[in-house]
């Protein structure tokens, strides 16, 4: 469904991604683990078209999306929950969700999807008229995921959803991620530093170091892999 083939991305002169190859099939939960600065976020930004790759190809549903603008990529069905949530701080919760559905025109179904979101995250419903910036970190993460879901994406890109959240909330959010994957058949590409949690959630995983993909295997094998254990799980 989503294929990265020999992708090279640069920030000015800095070679951030080096010949990255990733394959994601429909319905999978794929995780990408790596340390700070390894290039995890850059991969997502390249997929979303914010930092387009300099060489290599990104295919979505068989079509190259290299030179397509970010808004058209969203229209194709790729939504991202970026690192740090990036809630619009001076829009209300409802308005944030409206922005998630920005490209949609089916008003009735947008309404239904919003009800679905309120079922998924009751706290969001309670906060609906508050400004986004006044929500707690966990609530913002839930809102960020909800906002991305409002676009009815085929694939959801999640950038460190566990960052800075209490363990209980992290568990709640990961349960929801699994639920979205099973109920809506949404494919999920999960970027995480919390390798243990990510690998327990995902079907397959990739490890990135200094802009190169070094290991790719099933999640179970990665959990047992000595190098991965030592570097990312700390056991």
């Amino acid at each position: 469904m989503l294929n990265l083939s020999n992708v090279n991305t640069f920030y000015g002169n800095i070679h951030a991604l080096k010949d990255v190859n990733i394959e994601i099939s429909q319905g999978e939960i794929i995780t990408l683990i790596g340390s700070n600065g390894a290039g995890k976020t850059t991969i997502l930004m390249s997929i979303s078209g914010i930092v387009p790759p300099r060489s290599g190809e990104i295919f979505f549903m068989g079509k190259s999306i290299n030179s397509i603008s970010p808004d058209k990529i969203v229209a194709l069905g790729i939504s991202q929950v970026p690192e740090g949530r990036r809630i619009f701080p001076y829009l209300t919760v409802i308005e944030n969700l409206d922005m998630g559905a920005f490209l949609r025109k089916d008003k009735d179904r947008i309404k239904k999807d919003m009800e679905y979101i309120f079922d998924l995250f009751p706290i969001i419903s309670k906060r609906r008229n508050q400004l986004g910036g006044t929500l707690s970190g966990g609530e913002q993460q839930m809102l960020a995921i909800s906002r991305a879901l409002m676009a009815r994406p085929l694939i959801l890109l999640l950038d460190e959803p566990s960052l800075g959240l209490a363990p209980l909330i992290v568990k709640q959010i990961f349960d929801i991620i699994k639920k979205i994957n099973i109920e809506n058949k949404t494919t999920i590409f999960l970027v995480e530093q919390n390798a243990n949690l990510a690998l327990k959630t995902a079907h397959r995983g990739y490890v990135i170091e200094n802009g190169c993909i070094t290991i790719s295997d099933t999640a179970d094998n990665l959990l047992r892999n000595e190098a991965v254990k030592k570097a990312y799980i700390g056991l």
């Binding site: 979303s48 078209g49 970010p70 808004d71 969203v74 970026p82 922005m99």
Partner: peptide, 19 residues
């Protein structure tokens, strides 16, 4: 709404599909 969203966070506005 798109104008306000763009004013608050341009990259995020792009990520929800705003041109």
């Amino acid at each position: 709404k798109a104008m306000r969203a763009t004013a608050q966070d341009k990259n995020m506005a792009m990520l929800v599909g705003v041109n």
